[in-house]
Amino acid sequence: MLKLLKYALYDILKSRFAIIYTVFLALVAISIYQVSDDLSKVSLSLMNIMIMVVPLISAVFATTHFYNNLEFVELMLAQPVKRSQVFLSQLLAVILMLSLSILIGFGLPMLLWGADSSLITLLAVGMILSAVFTGFAFLASVMTRDKAKAIGISLALWIYFSLVYDGFVLYIIYSFADYPLEKATLGLVMLNPVDLGRILMLMQLDISALMGYTGAFFKQFFSSGIGMLVILMVLSIWLVVPIGLSGRIFKKKDF
């Protein structure tokens, strides 16, 4: 497994995409640092990149990568290695590459010009969302034999989670505005990994506003470690379930 991962990683880290992506992130981070007067403005601007652009690029790249590597995967499957190992090595290589790009592209400017806890949270959120959307992309890829269709599914998932879903939640709470909806909203937000990443950031940037909720429940949830723990747990479900599902399909898939 580690051997397969080593070679898969070696290949993907030298790809033109990895370099372009890292440079792109670094340029974005550098320009944001240049125009912002303080760290909180930096994290606000970077946050939009992290929760919008990073999932999009992760989803599209992971899908494309899966299909571009399909013949090689077939060759691997003809070798004496377990299917699950082939699958995981491919998946982990993509996740590690995307995470490393974020870590270098955003991390180096942070080392140079400073970071606060919200920026460090942001790095983590970016890496988690990359992993989650890679999982989605692999699921889409193993579900269909058609590359265009798989990219379509990945894009649809991205649009759904970063835009449509929030609109849907907003519509619901608008329609039921007369009821106490705080807990329901929190529950609904749990059903979207992008929102979870965003809430982790809100807990850094807007804790004062979040504390405006009525009740000890929210005070506990947002200000103690409990909320973060719950969110990370739900995020790991969002990570593990699509990956597990696509792994199962991959195991039974014909190549």
Partner: peptide, 9 residues
């Protein structure tokens, strides 16, 4: 394989 495709890099 008929057409071998390998990691580009």
């Amino acid at each position: 394989p008929q057409i071998g495709r390998y990691p580009q890099n």
